[in-house]
Structures are given as C-alpha cells and as structure tokens.
Design a protein around this nucleic acid. Structure first.
Length: 423
RNA sequence: GGAGAGAUGGCAGAGCGGUCGAAUGCGGCGGUCUUGAAAACCGUUGAGCCGAAAGGUUCCGGGGGUUCGAAUCCCUCUCUCUCCGCCA
C-alpha cells in the first residue's frame, strides 16, 4: 500500500498513476482522503477525551492512596459520561480505520517516471536483445522432443494430479536439478544468501506481498489449516523480515531461494498451456532484495543483470522488455520482463520478471531499516526470477536440439550433468 | 494426539488492580579517564498514531470482558517449552 501522507500530498500523481495502469476508479483516492480526514479529526477527539479520563483516574488513585475516599468518589462520578463517549468514538474510529485500510489496499502502486505509459503488452518497450533467434523450420517443439526421449510425462501427470502437473523423468528430471543448482550457485556467487522457504504461508503473509486482495484467485488454498500454497518464493522470502527493523549497514539484504510454485491459472487455454508453457506446478529460483530507498532503482538494474547473465551463460537468445504502465501489476512501480526465444514454437516466452516495489510491500509488512539518526524508515523491496524452470527447459531443448533429434548439453551445465555432451 | 508450564523492551529477567511504557542486568550509543584500547565511572537507549511544535494517545503474544483505573483479574484463540505417544 501507499503511504497515506504521500497520497495526501500527491493525490493527482496517484490518480494519474492509477489511470495509466488501467485502473479507472480514481474515486478511491478522493474517498480515502475523505475518510482519512474524518479519521484524524476523530483521533484528535478521542485522544483529548482519553487524556482527561486518564488524568482523572490518576487523581483517583492518588486520593485513594491518601485515604480521601469521598473526594475520589466525586471524581468517579464525573467519569461516567466521558466513558460512554470514548466507547462510542472507539467504534466510529474502528470503522473509519477499517475503511481507510481497505481503501489503501485497493490503490495500486504508482509507476515510476521512467516507465513508459501504455495500455497493453504492445506498448512495452524492447529494452535490449541478446543473441540471434533461431529460425530453422525443422526444429521441433519441446513437447515432441520430451515425448520422444521420455523426459516429461504429461499424461501420467493428468492421471495422478491433473493437467499442468507433469512428471519429469531421467534426463528431464536431471536437467531440472542441474538448472536449479546452476541458478543457485550463480546467485550465491553474486552475493545472494541461499534460503529454503516454507511452501505454505498464512494469510498475513499472502497479504503482505500483495497476493491478497488483488490476486487471491491465483493461489491454491488449504482452508482447513488456513494455508496458501505459494505462487512464488517471493511470498515467504519477502515475509521473512516482516515486522522487523534491519540495520542500515546490513543493506542491501539479498536472498536466493528455490521453491516449487503453484498457480491455479484459471481461464488459460490453447497454445499458452501447451507443453511446459503454463503449468499449475513449476520450479523457480527467486531473487529477493531488501534495499535502501535511495538505491532501489540501481538495485533493480543489477537484479535484471543477475537474471540476464544466467540466460547469457546458457547461451539462450532473449530480449528484455521494459513493461509499460498498463502491463504492470498492481504492486509494482517498475518492471522488466525477460523473454527467451523458443525456436520450436517460434515465439518469445517469459522466464523472468524483475520488479521494484519501492515501499509498497514493505509498508504493508512493516519492514524497515534504521537510518543514520536511528529512526526506523520503510525500506524498498525488489524481486525477480532467476529463473523460472519450465520455459527455460523448453527453450533449451529446442535450441540445443540437432536435426537427428539429439539434444546437446549447454557448456555451463556440463559440470552439473556429469560432463555429458548430450542429454 | 494426551498431560502440565509459560508468552513482558535487542537479549535475559522483575513486576500486592492506582504515580508502570514498565525495576535490574547484559548489549547498543555518547562522554570522562587513557598515547590507543580494555576496565571503571557518568549519561543515554522500544514502537505505532495525531500534531508545525509543545504535547497527547495507543501498545507488556492476538481478540473480548470486569473496573473510575488492567502487564497485573476473567473468558477465548494462537504460539512456545517440558513429559508421554507417534514419526521422515
């Protein structure tokens, strides 16, 4: 959520930001300011009442201590009315605070000034490209290769769990494990601390990173125990420091974590769900940073580079998109997507999304740092995939296939696959 | 899963229903002393909210209640620890 003080001072900026993100309901901003104004008046009122009531109680205590009972009793009589008033104000205040919070939760993050204004994915800016997309017609899509080699079993996945829950077998399984290790090792070399997170989180955590209320339908739930299956490691890892104050000199704090991710993906169909393109369960290594607000945009660039270097090391052609306002999520202020080229499908596949949330998540989660004056301040959070496995696997086997059908092992992965030349 | 104990500031640990946001110790920060450091001594040291400030207010695991007044009493939930059972 945004800082109410920021909204107060920059209402127009917030509204423009909303419109640019395709959220037309800017009345939310007016409403939250109205409620906030009302709330602050009431807070002042109740604080004043409490102040006198506290003073009376103290006086009563003092008199009782001195045995001056009648005088104490006289003051007690005065308290009755103010007590009623306080109770009533408390109720009003609670209602106002609830509405205020609810409204704040529904106002999206403001896009950074460097973000291009646009409505759809067509307005995204191609920020960079690397490598030459492979065009040969003989190249097969990954699902055919995977079937031929029995690396992935989609049918049995359907039998055992459902669509979108494939089995990986033999070299297919080993390739997954190799990629995870390669990603984690590389991240560790670049200063990220490896972290293994819980796969289920509670509701407070889901709210902290913004899955609730915006995207709760994307998550699988375990209602009996109040759990949400994580849609990304971002959720547990970012919540790792919820309600904490980090020391200035510890920043930036950087984590890399591998987890499976579960997403309901309701409403997906067609070529988008073919093969490994979109699954209900997939593996991902996630990079998460907690940084000083002054450095968060530099940190976003280095986060993007960390992810891009993995693709370069795998020698997979890709392009980097700077997402336009309309194609960004609710919680982000700036986002890059990395798309890898799939020669078998002749299309780009998103494999990473690197975002700066500024204080949007940190404010909800009360993750702060202590500034040079010792005062707690909201810090900035970022995260990016480094990387998501399934589409890397698709692009990789399609890119490294030979006309015979064999698939070479990328040089960087050889140490992870016993030095083998071919999968 | 069964039985018992507990949850207080960065940590440890006090706290007959009234002047307790909370003793004390450790740690942190500032200072005195010292060539420097250590030790010793002195001071300081939780967070949220309202407020330009002065100041006010809220918070002793969460929620509710009793009371003029709750860290302290009652109810409830959650979590932790010990013992038993089960178990990768």
């Amino acid at each position: 959520m945004l800082d109410i003080a920021y909204i107060r001072a920059n209402a127009d900026l917030v509204k423009t930001g909303m419109q640019n993100k395709g959220e037309a309901n800017t009345a939310l901003v007016d409403r939250v300011l109205e409620v906030d104004e009302h709330w602050r008046t009431k807070v002042h009122e109740i604080d004043t009442l409490r102040s006198t009531s506290n003073a009376r109680s103290k006086e009563i205590g003092k008199l009782m201590g001195q045995g001056r009972k009648e005088e104490a009793q006289a003051i007690m009589a005065e308290t009755a009315t103010s007590k009623e008033q306080i109770n009533q104000l408390e109720e009003e205040l609670a209602a106002l605070a609830a509405e205020r919070t609810d409204l704040l939760y529904r106002i999206p993050n403001v896009p950074h000034t460097s973000v291009p204004v646009g409505h759809t994915d067509e307005d995204n800016v191609i920020y960079a490209t690397w490598g030459e997309p492979v065009q040969e017609q003989w190249r097969k899509p990954h699902w055919e290769l995977a079937k031929t080699h029995q690396w992935i079993d989609f049918e049995r996945g359907v039998k055992v769990s459902g669509a979108g829950f494939p089995f990986y077998l033999g070299s297919g399984a080993r390739l997954q494990r190799a990629l995870i290790n390669f990603f984690l090792n590389t991240a560790a070399e670049r200063g990220y601390t490896e972290i293994q997170a819980p796969y289920f989180v509670n509701e407070v955590s889901a709210r902290g990173t913004g899955q609730i209320p915006d995207k709760e339908d994307m998550m699988y739930t375990v209602p009996r125990d109040g759990f949400f299956a994580i849609p990304t490691a971002e959720v547990p890892v970012t919540n790792f420091h919820r309600d904490e104050i980090l020391e200035l000199q510890s920043l930036p704090v950087k984590y890399c974590g591998y987890t499976p991710c579960w997403r309901r993906e309701a409403g997906s169909y067609g070529k988008d769900v073919r093969g490994l393109n979109r699954l209900h369960q997939f593996d991902k290594v996630e990079l998460v940073k907690f940084v000083h607000p002054d450095t968060s945009y530099d940190e976003l660039e280095s986060l993007r580079e960390d992810a891009e270097l993995l693709l370069q090391a795998l020698e997979l052609p890709y392009r980097t998109l700077l997402m336009c306002t309309g194609d960004m999520g609710f919680t982000q202020s700036k986002k890059y997507d990395l798309e890898v080229w799939s020669p078998g499908q002749q299309r780009w596949l998103e494999v990473s999304s690197c975002s700066n949330f500024e204080g949007f998540q940190a404010r909800r989660m009360m993750v702060r740092y202590r500034d040079e004056h010792g005062k707690p301040q909201i810090l900035h959070t970022l995260n990016g995939s480094g990387l998501a496995l399934p589409r890397i696997v698709s692009a990789l086997i399609e890119t490294y296939q030979e006309e015979s059908g064999r698939v070479r092992v990328p040089t960087v992965l050889k140490p992870y696959l016993g030095g083998a030349e071919y999968l």
